[in-house]
Amino acid sequence: MDLDPRPLYTRATGQVAALMARVKPEALGDATPCEEFDVRGLLAHLVGGVRAGAERGRTDADVALVAAEGVPDDGWLPAYDEARALFDEVWADDAKLDAPVSVPWGEMPGRAYLASGCVLETVAHTWDLSTALGHPLPLDQELAEYALEWARRVLPAERRGGPVPFGPVRPAPEGADAYARLAAWLGREV
């Protein structure tokens, strides 16, 4: 798990961008499996997450994830693409992979932050957005397997509740794909 997570993050954000391109304005108020967000709120969270990741890489300080505000209904994809370009620019230096990064729960190497804080988060919300949109595109199962491996490592079942923002692990249906298994591990109803 010590590989460079940046190419996986690029694939994950590309997948989200492809889904964002399919969001119709009338769907922005629709529910998602992530109970705290409707589609618009999830898009704001995704854009804000990429911006926060770029800022964390630039400053190496703990940066709060703030949902993007003021984005017009037809501007989510351009806002996301702009944030992705900034993120890629900030994290292009290989030295950042082993440099310490401050996160709310402590400090970790940039490589671990990118894997657990960026790839995992993006892949999990990919399933949320895809589900809300009726699964319009096939999803990259390798990304979900990678994210699930990290989720099991950093979000063990016995640490749920309290400050850990995930519910208890839920069962995934027999034969579920990697995204459904990840969603169930993160406490979502599959």
Results as ranks from 00 to 15, higher is better:
residue 88 D to S: 12
residue 34 C to T: 05
residue 118 C to Q: 15
residue 45 H to I: 02
residue 70 G to R: 06
residue 107 E to T: 14
residue 86 L to A: 13
residue 52 A to L: 07
residue 51 R to Y: 00
residue 63 V to W: 05
residue 44 A to C: 11
residue 72 P to A: 14
residue 74 D to N: 14
residue 118 C to K: 05
residue 43 L to A: 14
residue 57 G to I: 03
residue 94 D to N: 10
residue 94 D to T: 13
residue 111 R to A: 07
residue 48 G to Q: 06
residue 79 A to F: 06
residue 80 Y to G: 02
residue 125 H to I: 07
residue 114 L to D: 00
residue 116 S to C: 04
residue 126 T to N: 07
residue 47 V to N: 10
residue 47 V to W: 09
residue 45 H to N: 01
residue 95 A to W: 01
residue 44 A to M: 04
residue 69 E to F: 03
residue 54 A to G: 15
residue 44 A to W: 03
residue 114 L to H: 09
residue 100 P to C: 01
residue 41 G to Y: 09
residue 29 G to Q: 12
residue 109 P to D: 09
residue 80 Y to K: 01
residue 36 E to V: 11
residue 74 D to M: 12
residue 29 G to C: 11
residue 99 A to M: 06
residue 100 P to R: 01
residue 28 L to V: 03
residue 107 E to V: 12
residue 62 D to K: 14
residue 32 T to Q: 09
residue 42 L to H: 08
residue 22 R to Q: 15
residue 122 T to C: 08
residue 43 L to Q: 13
residue 126 T to G: 12
residue 89 E to T: 14
residue 118 C to I: 14
residue 25 P to E: 11
residue 122 T to N: 05
residue 122 T to P: 00
residue 28 L to D: 01
residue 114 L to W: 05
residue 112 A to G: 09
residue 129 L to Y: 07
residue 28 L to F: 03
residue 112 A to E: 15
residue 39 V to T: 10
residue 100 P to G: 00
residue 99 A to W: 08
residue 49 G to P: 01
residue 95 A to P: 01
residue 38 D to H: 12
residue 69 E to C: 00
residue 129 L to A: 12
residue 29 G to V: 09
residue 91 W to Q: 01
residue 60 D to G: 12
residue 109 P to I: 01
residue 30 D to P: 01
residue 86 L to N: 08
residue 54 A to P: 08
residue 78 P to L: 03
residue 120 L to Q: 13
residue 28 L to R: 04
residue 80 Y to P: 01
